[in-house]
């Protein structure tokens, strides 16, 4: 599968993650950028916060140190935009649960498919890695 070597070059290590199509690997840089988005989403684990969020989402988001862009992306449930801003799906999943959505439905919203087509793709064996492993290598 791969030769025996230890990772010694942090720059090369991080750079390869940018070579995967349609993917935002949760690197330290993204974790720093998205810190408040993720902590805000995380706060929805508490039932009382879920209630306050549902009652007035905008007001709830105003309490957090978020950019206007991030607030809007949360209001729009634009998960791809949130990933670009350093959101991580495990934190964002607290918003998905608060909405009472299935994980698969929210995940499908980030793809080219609607939920029905996404489910059909999964039932047929999922998305093939063929052609989406590497941007540079095109394989």
């Amino acid at each position: 599968m791969t030769e025996r070597k230890r990772i010694t070059d942090i720059h090369a290590y991080l750079e390869q993650f940018e070579d995967v199509p349609g993917t935002r690997v949760f690197t330290a840089a993204r974790a720093r950028k998205g810190y408040h988005i993720n902590q805000c989403a995380m706060s929805l684990m508490k039932p009382e916060n879920r209630e306050r969020f549902k009652a007035d989402e905008r007001a709830y988001l105003e309490e957090w140190n978020l950019s206007e862009e991030a607030r809007q992306a949360i209001l729009d449930r634009d998960y791809n935009a949130l990933l670009d801003m350093g959101g991580n799906i495990y934190f964002l999943s607290k918003i998905i649960s608060t909405d009472g959505l299935s994980f698969a439905e929210a995940v499908s919203s980030m793809t080219e498919h609607n939920f029905e087509d996404y489910k059909a793709m999964m039932a047929a064996g999922g998305r093939s890695p063929e052609g989406v492993r590497s941007i540079k290598g095109k394989y």
């Binding site: 599968m1 995967v20 993917t23 994980f103 793809t111 793709m121 999922g126």
Partner: peptide, 30 residues
């Protein structure tokens, strides 16, 4: 679970990985 590439599955690779946990090979650690 994230991004436009979500939904990726790889039956062949997964099974190769399981094979590598059986017997005396330690290839998977690399």
């Amino acid at each position: 679970l994230q991004g436009p590439r979500a939904g990726l599955l790889n039956r062949e690779w997964d099974n190769k990985f399981m094979d590598l946990l059986i017997g005396d090979t330690d290839e998977a650690r690399w």
